[in-house]
Simulated scan of single mutants.
Amino acid sequence: MIITMSTSVRECLELQLLEMEMIFSMFPNKEDIAINGVNSLSIVRRYIEGTYEPLPSSIEFSVFVKTDDLKKAELHVYLPHNYPTKEPQLFVRSSALDKLQHNDLNKCLSTYISSLDRGDLCITNAIQWLTDNISSYVEKSKHCNGNEADTGKSPITFHRMWIYSHHIYRQELRKKILDCAKRLNLTGFCLMGKPGVICVEGDKEHCEEFWRDIRYPNWKHISCKHTESKDVSDSMEGLRLFQSFEELSFEAHGAYGLRNDYHMDLGQFFDYLRKHQSDHIFQILFGVEGKS
């Protein structure tokens, strides 16, 4: 198939499924690939076959590439509906890299992808590029961290983010929020329903990674309303207002099937905030003073 800018979405999705098959053959171990949405690929396939009418969600997944010291680098991939006529959105992260190495690595990967012919499938190329290059970034990170140890510990920034969304319903999204907070050692909560509110607290870089991950790539009607930061020399545990990350669900008004009428009891939510020394946030989130 010759790919042009006029190639249809259905033809692009066919190519995306073809490339997914190639990626599965590269990684026979199922643990090395994580698809966002258990049935997402089958829904795309049904759309192509004409048995599923709505335009399916874009394909989104992660591939885990091992470095020489067996640590894993995660390549997160988001494929727009018209990929490969449009560039994919890629982001690499690894516990073996610091913030500067992450930025450097992702810039180089983006430059590499941009150098390829637009219209060609390129995710397998990106995986191979990461496999070939990740170890050099890990070594650079070790060297930099070694120099840091000689001069003393770098300061830690404790951070808290208050995030507002028009609503949070989908089970898939709620699981992503919980899993992401747990992976990044963040505490706080996710208030599901309408409106939706998320609070995360912990290391600043981890909070920013959480914010980037959950809104990526196109979550509409979500905004970070307020942030709080404080530099600490040692532990940040005494600054946390929450002991874990939990999902909240209070009594609701209205029928669940009628989402425009399904509102969480904000009085109960205000009481929850007050118990966690955060009642002042209510007005920042909703523009009105809170009441029990």
Rank of each mutant, 00 (worst) to 15 (best):
M5D: 15
M5A: 14
S6L: 11
S8Y: 11
L13W: 03
L13F: 08
Q16E: 03
Q16C: 05
E19Y: 07
M20E: 12
E21Q: 13
M22H: 05
F27V: 01
N29P: 05
D32Q: 13
N36V: 14
L41D: 10
S42F: 13
V44Q: 14
V44E: 08
S57F: 13
S58I: 10
F61I: 09
V63P: 09
K66F: 11
K66M: 12
L70I: 00
L70F: 05
K72L: 09
A73H: 05
V77N: 03
L79D: 04
P80H: 09
H81P: 10
N82Q: 13
Y83A: 07
Y83K: 07
F91I: 13
L97Y: 10
C108M: 13
S110C: 10
R118Q: 12
T124Q: 05
N125S: 01
A126I: 06
A126T: 04
W129E: 07
D132R: 09
N133K: 13
I134T: 12
S135L: 00
S141M: 00
S141H: 01
H143K: 15
N145P: 01
A149K: 13
T157F: 07
M161K: 02
Y164E: 07
Y169A: 08
Q171C: 06
K176T: 00
C180D: 09
A181D: 06
L184C: 02
L186C: 08
T187H: 10
G188C: 09
C190M: 02
M192P: 00
P195V: 11
V197P: 03
I198Y: 04
E201D: 09
H206G: 03
C207D: 10
W211E: 14
D213V: 15
N218P: 03
H221C: 14
C224N: 14
C224K: 14
K225S: 11
T227F: 01
E228C: 08
S229W: 04
S229E: 06
S233I: 06
M236W: 04
L239I: 07
L241W: 05
E247K: 02
A252P: 01
G257L: 11
N260V: 02
D261L: 12
G267T: 03
F269I: 12
F270V: 11
F270G: 14
D271M: 15
L273W: 13
H280F: 12
H280V: 02
F282K: 09
Q283R: 14
K291C: 05
S292M: 10
